[in-house]
Design a protein around this nucleic acid. Structure first.
Lengths: 153, 153
DNA sequence: ATGAAATTGAGACTCAGTCTCAGTCTCAAC
DNA sequence: GTTGAGACTGAGACTGAGTCTCAATTTCAT
C-alpha cells in the first residue's frame, strides 16, 4: 500500500489527468481496508470518516481504478457492482451465498487454464474470467440443518 | 414446446396460482423464439406482435419462470438481466464480446465437475454455476487485425 | 504567477426493476 | 351456472444504482 498510489499516479500522468485531493482520499480509503465493497459502501465510509466525496467523483474514480487494473469489478446480479482489490491475487472464483449474501473465494490454476483453452477453441480471445458459484455457505447449511431437525412440531 | 406450458401449468397449480391469458402470451412468446433476451426485448416484442402485456406482468412472469427453472437469469454487468431457456442444455459457460456485445456459449462437463469439487472443498453447497469469459470474439478480432494493418498512416 | 485544461459537487436525469391499488379474472365449491 | 375468495392485471408512481451537466474550483506545465 503506497504502491497503489504510485501506480495510480503514473496512470493519471500518462493520460494527462491530475491526482487530486478527492481522488487520493478515495484511493487511500479503498486500499486502507475494504476487500469486497460497493460504491455505496465507499461513499458511506468516506462520509463517516469525515472526508466526504461526492457520488459523481467516487464513481469516476472507481472507473479510473478499474481502467488501470487496480480494481476489479464484479457483478453478482444484485443490481449493483462490487469492487475488489486486483493486487495480490490471481484470478479466483467467487462463492456467493444466496442465504446470507456473504462472498468467499476459491482458487485453482487448472480452472483458469481450462477456461482459457475452451475459449480459444471457440476462436474467442479471452481477457478476463468470472466464475461465480451460487449456493449455500457452510454456516448457512449448518443453520438450516439445525432448523430442520429442531422443528419437529 | 408445449412441454413448457405443461411444466408451467403444473408449477402454478402446485402453488395455487392461475395460468392466465397474459402469462400464457408471455410463455409462448419466450419459447416460440428468443434465445438470450432481456425483459425489455420481450416487452417490445409483445407490443409489436399486437399482444401487449404490461411491464409489471412481464417481470412477474419472468420471476415465475425462473423459479420453476424454465428460464435461467444471467447478468453480464450491463445493469440489466438476460434470460435464457433452461430446457435443453446442461450448464454451459458464456463468452461475452466486449466489442460487439454478442453472447456465445461453450460447454465442457469437466469444467462443471471441477467447480463442484472446488466449492465443496470450501464447505459450500453449490446450487448453480455461472462462468463468464469476457474478451473479443473471432469476428471482432479479425476486424481489429484488419484495422491495425490497414491503418499504417 | 498564469491560464488552459482537468476536476469537482450538487442535483437533475436515466433506466431497469419493484410496488401499489382499484378494477378484473379464475376456478373450486356450491 | 352462480358465487366469492383470492389471484391477477395494468397504469403509473416509486426506488436505487449509476450517469450527466454545468458553473465554480483546482491543478500544473510554462
Amino acid at each position: 500500500m503506497g504502491d497503489e498510489v504510485q501506480i495510480f499516479e503514473d496512470y493519471l500522468k500518462k493520460h494527462s489527468l491530475h491526482l487530486t485531493g478527492p481522488r487520493e482520499t478515495v484511493l487511500r480509503s479503498i486500499f486502507g481496508t475494504h476487500e469486497h465493497f460497493t460504491a455505496d459502501d465507499l461513499i458511506a465510509h468516506l462520509q463517516r470518516a469525515g472526508t466526504p466525496v461526492s457520488k459523481a467523483t467516487v464513481y469516476r474514480t472507481l472507473s479510473l481504478l478499474s481502467e488501470c487494473s487496480l480494481l476489479i469489478e464484479h457483478d453478482f446480479g444484485q443490481g449493483k457492482m462490487y469492487y475488489e482489490h486486483a493486487s495480490e491475487l490471481q484470478h479466483h472464483g467467487h462463492l456467493y451465498c444466496s442465504d446470507c449474501g456473504r462472498i468467499s473465494e476459491f482458487y485453482d490454476p487448472r480452472l483458469n487454464a481450462m477456461q482459457e483453452k475452451l475459449a480459444r477453441q471457440e476462436g474467442f480471445e479471452p481477457v478476463s474470467f468470472a466464475v461465480k458459484i451460487y449456493g449455500r455457505c457452510a454456516d448457512c447449511s449448518a443453520k438450516q440443518a439445525r432448523r430442520d431437525t429442531g422443528a419437529i412440531s
